[in-house]
Design a binder for these strands. Structure first.
Lengths: 249, 249
DNA sequence: AATTGTGAATACTTTCACAGCG
DNA sequence: CGCTGTGAAAGTATTCACAATT
């Protein structure tokens, strides 16, 4: 998988009372958070196919997790199921969406409009999940002014302007590795607090800013490791052995 | 984050003696495996900048992990450091590369040459890590025959031919979600045992086949969750609190 | 004197198993 | 009766802290 990092790991004493939200809103494990979008996607599919109720077993199967893990995950959010019956698809979908923040629209700025940035700008999966690409930024004079889906590419020099005007707090960095840290610094300065980083470099950001990294080369290398292992086992035992289940997300 | 799944979770009794490889080659935790490519990248950088020795502290810092985690990770591979001194960059780099399988070249086939597939086909990060894109496959008549870096796009109907000719065991699926499972089935049939899946769907594969999923929309949703939480905290306490460190990889 | 390698301790995650409820 | 929700148990991963080694 990809990885999440949030630099700055000291913790507040969690003094504030948590009466504000209908459902307790604290300490959901990171591993659970990473699975919520999966559940949400499956629920949308189910809703689309006319199912209006689903059991933990069926939902878990479709999401690729164990039923007990699904129930444990959902239990962090509240008790949205009905014993003996299951979950109401529409209701659970709404509750999950509310938790993940997908009931609102999030403006997103993409910095670095190379092959990958262009692909991301065209990616329909963002739109359907509530993200609106409101800024495309690149330093290349060849690209500035071109349009993707009607949105013009802006010069990197005007990054301040773009972020300020759109109010984006989520940004995607798809620049070469060398440029990424500089871009991140400017984004953070402008109030961006969540960054999805495709550059093959570690970003240093202040506490309170969340970075998720997707390193495509790294993903393949992890697969190569498994291949390598399979080949080794094969040559020793004469038949492939089964690897244990992966991790993360 | 991205996620690793390997369906089929039964385990062999691990009867075979493990004398073949110089270093014990068993049970490296999945979380460690996911970090090895990061260490490898940092080591390459260090080598490039002329450093020939590095301490666990410095290497850990550059990789974004704790020194003790780095040392624990490396300890699974063997004892490649020198107490009181540190690690020899070239030697550690070689050992890590050998473990990850990046001393050899891996032919890779990409299926689905839309925006994302095109970006992946152009991505230089694959080449530098030992991957060779040897096949580009898509069903669209508009695309078949076009070339990317000199490699012609082949019709999906000839998938069998492409995989057979190139001997690829690693494939990337960048098709629409609906097409992904069908493509995966054919790939597995052809002997592919590692798949990097960008389609927003869960792939069912037989035991022994490793799948890693990268869902870009999902990555943003995880960030949105954090934003959502920050906004909530902010409105309650008047200042942003720091989130705990993420997970995965 | 400095830094690795590693058992032991801690923290986190998943699974189990069953009580609770519709 | 069936399925959820959840404490308790088991399994993993990370951090600590220090002995071992150069």
């Amino acid at each position: 998988m990809s990885s999440a990092e949030t630099l700055g790991r000291d913790r507040e004493g969690r003094a504030a009372a948590l009466l504000a939200e209908p459902v307790a809103d604290k300490g959901i494990p990171a591993s659970t958070v990473a699975r919520l979008p999966v559940y949400l996607r499956v629920l949308h599919q189910l809703a689309g196919s006319g199912q209006d109720t689903v059991s933990s077993g069926a939902l878990a199967e479709a999401a690729g997790v164990s039923p007990s893990q699904l129930r444990k995950d959902l239990s962090y959010l509240g008790s949205y199921g009905t014993r003996g019956v299951g979950y109401d698809v529409a209701h659970l979908s709404f509750q999950l969406g509310r938790e993940v923040g997908s009931t609102q629209e999030w403006p997103v700025v993409i910095v670095g409009i190379g092959n990958l940035g262009t692909a991301l700008a065209n990616y329909s999966g963002f739109y359907s999940r509530g993200f609106r690409v409101v800024g495309l930024v690149d330093p290349s004079p060849d690209l500035v002014g071109r349009r993707i889906h009607g949105l013009a590419i802006t010069d990197l020099a005007e990054l301040e302007d773009v972020v300020g005007r759109t109010g984006a707090v989520i940004a995607v960095i798809a620049t070469p590795a060398e440029a990424a840290q500089g871009v991140a610094d400017r984004l953070v300065q402008l109030g961006v607090t969540s960054i999805l980083n495709f550059a093959a470099t570690l970003l240093a950001v202040p506490p309170g800013v969340t970075v998720r990294k997707v390193d495509l080369g790294q993903e393949l290398q992890i697969l190569a490791y498994h291949e390598h292992r399979k080949a080794g086992e094969l040559s020793k035992t004469g038949h492939a052995t089964v690897r244990e289940r992966g991790m993360i997300d």
